[in-house]
Write a protein that binds this DNA or RNA. Sequence first.
DNA 1: AGTTCCATGTAAAAGGTTACATGATTTT
DNA 2: AAAATCATGTAACCTTTTACATGGAACT
Lengths: 181, 181
Amino acid sequence: MKQTNYVILGLLSESPLTGYQIKKIIDIRFRYFWSESYGQLYPTLKELNQKGFITIIETEGEKKRSQITYQITNDGLSTLCSWLGQPVERESVRLEILLKMYFSHLVEPTVMIGHIREFQKKHEQDLFILDLFEQELQAIIDKDPIHPYVLRIIDFGQKINRAYLDWSLETIKFLESQVKK
Amino acid sequence: MKQTNYVILGLLSESPLTGYQIKKIIDIRFRYFWSESYGQLYPTLKELNQKGFITIIETEGEKKRSQITYQITNDGLSTLCSWLGQPVERESVRLEILLKMYFSHLVEPTVMIGHIREFQKKHEQDLFILDLFEQELQAIIDKDPIHPYVLRIIDFGQKINRAYLDWSLETIKFLESQVKK
DNA sequence: AGTTCCATGTAAAAGGTTACATGATTTT
DNA sequence: AAAATCATGTAACCTTTTACATGGAACT
């Protein structure tokens, strides 16, 4: 079963959510290690519902706005737990910037400097947001047993982004030394 | 045009290669930031050939073993260079281990400790190989103007893998503290 | 009145993996 | 003689993105 299923089951194991809310959570909290598109999410929600791993609750409960809130079932929860026990299989990383860096001796060093500055800007922002998250979470760390787990994934993001930024600085320095030649 | 095209063009910009050799280089040198399958590579080589970005040389030049060596054309080279000038677009990272970590409060801490130890082992090996690469390259750094560029991508790999390993150690420590409870 | 956000969805295309087939060569 | 590696390729399948359509609600 594709991974999208488990992301959905995992998020629904915490609380009932709509497809739209699931997408937002992935975009914000999982941004630096996961992504999903609507074209993937909505059909998968339907499939999970058909299989009985999730059910619909309070369709148009109070609001008239069309929204479908899903809840995980016992079947869904045990499927999720059995997946958690399986060995980690897929680890896919594809960084175009490294591909470009590798071949960038073919163009002016300034070209690559531009790319890396963009990369740097993006990951400075990511790190900034993660640091905020961490602070907020540290303040309420004991309120929920999940919090220390969340902190671990925030820490991962921080470490990775710091590595990205270190590399960017060093690489810009190197490329600037190439310009002078 | 999909990224596979540019990986191929990039590698052929250094020297003529067969599809099989391209695959091996990607598996070894680009392992920690890129991957390609044969099902993707061979058809793409055909397409690039049809478009005139690469040509076939010395098909069965000396050896009788069926092998097709490709060479980049001027068209291919200028296509590659124009891509190098375009802003970096896709940066896809999908780490199942973080997904599992996020939801792992649902299972025994020992389960996740097992997963992380595997992860750790894998990236210790990666780092070991990168350190070897670095040493070899440092010894011949002045022999080719490309070498300092290659060193930059090795450095990236080292930084990322060190971040992975730091995180693994800290996270195993945290999970072990959860076991005792 | 217009824009933005909420919210769901689909169809087509693109991207990518897996499993298989084939056969030569080299190593054990 | 068997196993591993070199080498190419394809077809089926799965996964994922993109672009579009729809319309209500909230904000400005």
